[in-house]
């Protein structure tokens, strides 16, 4: 059993990345561990996840507009089962703290902790800031970050040049870069993202 834990700065695109990864790599389970923000939750993409035969494990209060920081009541069966799973965690060190609750379970599993970074977010716009954010999250959750995911974007105003520049920032961060994501098609060496949670109005 493999587990992929998606963490990162508030608003870096964690949930979109988690959904995209689950769909693309055909991972059949995804867990909503966000206890910080009542908006933009996995349940908002329930239909597309269900269509892809991905089971969403989330708090019974997620997506109900009840602003309650609660965990899924049935979360333990994720650790008992043998299926691969994606964990979508809340933002910043505050959101990552919830992982500490499951440290012993994660220690027994083959875990990859992936930190999503958008260098166009002001608090993760250079290498030092990214390292600082990573240290804070690691300290809060007690897990070591295995990889970074470069999710640099300005939504519909994203450009290829912006991506190129962002790669230079990641060169200076001593954590391996797993992938660079984009919604712009046909850029070499990128993972093509789709937007599932948010839409333009």
């Amino acid at each position: 059993m493999k587990c992929y834990i998606v963490i990162g700065h508030y608003g870096s695109g964690k949930s979109e990345v988690a959904i995209n990864l689950a769909i693309h790599y055909k991972i059949k389970r995804i867990v909503d561990l966000d206890i910080v923000n009542p908006y933009f939750r996995l349940n908002d993409a329930y239909n597309v996840l269900e269509k892809n035969n991905i089971e969403v494990i989330s708090s019974q209060f997620a997506g109900t507009n009840a602003d309650l920081p609660s965990l899924p009541h049935n979360i333990n069966r994720v650790f008992d089962a043998n299926d691969d799973v994606v964990f979508d965690v809340g933002g910043d060190d505050v959101g990552a703290r919830v992982l500490g609750r499951f440290r012993e379970e994660f220690a027994k599993m083959n875990c990859q902790v992936m930190m999503v970074v958008n260098t166009r977010r002001p608090e993760t716009s250079d290498a030092n800031m990214i390292i600082k954010q990573a240290n804070e999250i690691e300290a809060a959750c007690g897990l070591k970050i295995s990889y970074l995911i470069n999710n640099t974007n300005l939504m519909n105003e994203s450009t290829e040049k912006m991506l190129e520049n962002s790669r230079l920032i990641f060169d200076e961060v001593p954590i391996p870069l797993l992938m660079t994501t984009t919604m712009i098609p046909n850029i070499p060496d990128t993972f093509l993202m789709k937007r599932y949670l948010t839409q333009a109005i």
């Binding site: 608003g11 958008n118 166009r120 977010r121 002001p122 716009s125 974007n153 300005l154 939504m155 105003e157 450009t159 040049k161 912006m162 520049n165």
Partner: peptide, 15 residues
């Protein structure tokens, strides 16, 4: 390259 950043409305107002 633009110097734009990506922010939530709440963060933008605070900044």
């Amino acid at each position: 390259m633009s110097d734009k950043v990506l922010m939530k409305g709440n963060e933008a107002a605070a900044e």
